[in-house]
Design a protein around this nucleic acid. Structure first.
Lengths: 240, 240
DNA sequence: ATTGCTTAGTTGTATAGTGCAACTAACTTA
DNA sequence: TAAGTTAGTTGCACTATACAACTAAGCAAT
């Protein structure tokens, strides 16, 4: 690093953190978006954007702390699966100048979410159905691109991990878990191999309870770890 | 973003880009490190660090441009496989203040590298053998941690991609490619399944030429694409 | 109570990519 | 011509998957 750099008297880029918050609503993959305020002096007024904000160098110890602070503010969720996605930074993504964002993604269990409208200032948070590689609305900044990358990463990882399990409530049946997988992947999976896969690892714990329905009751399971996903050895389908 | 934020009158973190540059030297995985200068007014004087530096908001259009600029400065390589690894940012990784780094990793073909000593100011660049999860020297900042993460990511991806192919010269034999895989993974692979895997995809192009030796000549291959790695359907070994 | 319907869960067979071991092929050197 | 070395192939076992047909457990209607 040059002497010039060491004096730090050069322009620094803006530093933000964004979180792509996924959940399952009515068995469909959803993403949480925030409506930006109407102040015309800020970029993209009134437009939908990912959850996120500036790093607060006084409050935040590290980037993940910024992400968790924002997640808590907008969803009321204290602990959740949170994984770094990637970072973006260039001269034109924010009209205010050279800007970087460190992007995380999170998969929230349905029952853990406090309705976005509950927090102060959060009435502009709303869940959007994920359709193909995005949502049915325009997004601020380069957030459409970031969201597409997050969806792609999520779908890729779902092929060989247990990530959708983090979208489930405390107790769930194998069929419900399969539904979650299918909602994320947007394609059907085969029942028997799905069950074999899920039960072949240390992912689930069977409970003695059954979910009653208008037909054969289904055994209820729970996650052994709400933090660590399980990795499978193969992806789901053969090449089509 | 708050009104306070919109005025941008708050302290911004430092923004750097680091690149973990991998190559194969004498059939061993190596990483390129730079010796920081002896100016005591800068952090970690005389210590080894990853290739990297501050984002230059005047010169660099985006983060990858910063990475490629640094890569060119230190290795003379203009085009190389470059993938984003992750980002780090916290209040204590740099004594100068809250600091973030966007980290990339690169796999360089042996013959593409101009000796580090060739560039101006680059005489302090040196290749280090990768041993276990690091190198046999102390690193500046949190670079030992970053390097360990990069090695881990590289090894993980090598289990199901063609990444080591980017470490090869223009023409190579299947045995040489297998040696590269084994150097990265630090474990032996089985010959026949390795060959089947490599030839089952669109990765390689057979040439009519053979590498002559003191015994049976080996067919020479070349990469079909020097940019896109191939993804295989499974990882290499069964669970041990 | 029996039949039919629905959903949960199992079983048997085929397939594909891998690991393993033994084999053949091509070349050099003595 | 034989021995040694490395390249490359072949056959068989193994395992996780896909697919299809099956059984199991509940409800509702008759």
């Amino acid at each position: 690093m040059s002497t010039k750099a060491s004096k730090l008297n050069f322009e620094k880029p803006l530093t933000t953190v964004d979180i792509v918050v996924f959940s399952l609503l009515e068995n469909k993959l959803n993403v949480l978006l925030i409506k930006r305020n109407e102040d015309e002096s800020e970029p993209y007024p009134n437009q939908w954007a990912l959850v996120g904000g500036f790093v607060d160098v006084m409050k935040d110890e590290n980037l993940e702390a910024t992400a968790r602070r924002k997640l808590l503010e907008k969803t009321g969720v204290k602990t959740a699966y949170l994984e770094q996605l990637a970072s973006w930074g260039n001269s034109n993504r924010d009209p205010r100048g050279w800007s970087t964002t460190h992007v995380y993604f999170s998969t929230l269990a349905i029952n853990d979410i406090q309705t976005p409208s509950s927090g102060a200032n959060a009435s502009d948070a709303q869940w959007f159905d994920v359709i193909d590689n995005g949502v049915a609305t325009t997004l601020a900044f380069d957030h459409a691109n970031i969201l597409a990358t997050a969806i792609h990463r999520l779908r890729s990882k779902v092929e060989y991990t247990s990530l959708p399990a983090f979208l489930m409530p405390e107790f769930f049946t194998l069929k419900e878990l399969q539904n979650a997988y299918e909602a994320v992947l947007a394609r059907p999976l085969e029942k028997s191999s799905f069950r074999t896969r899920m039960l072949s690892t240390d992912l689930l714990e069977a409970t003695p309870n059954y979910k009653e329905a208008a037909n054969r009751p289904a055994q209820l399971y729970r996650l052994k770890s709400k933090i660590d996903p399980v990795f499978f050895q193969r992806t789901f389908n053969p090449i089509k």
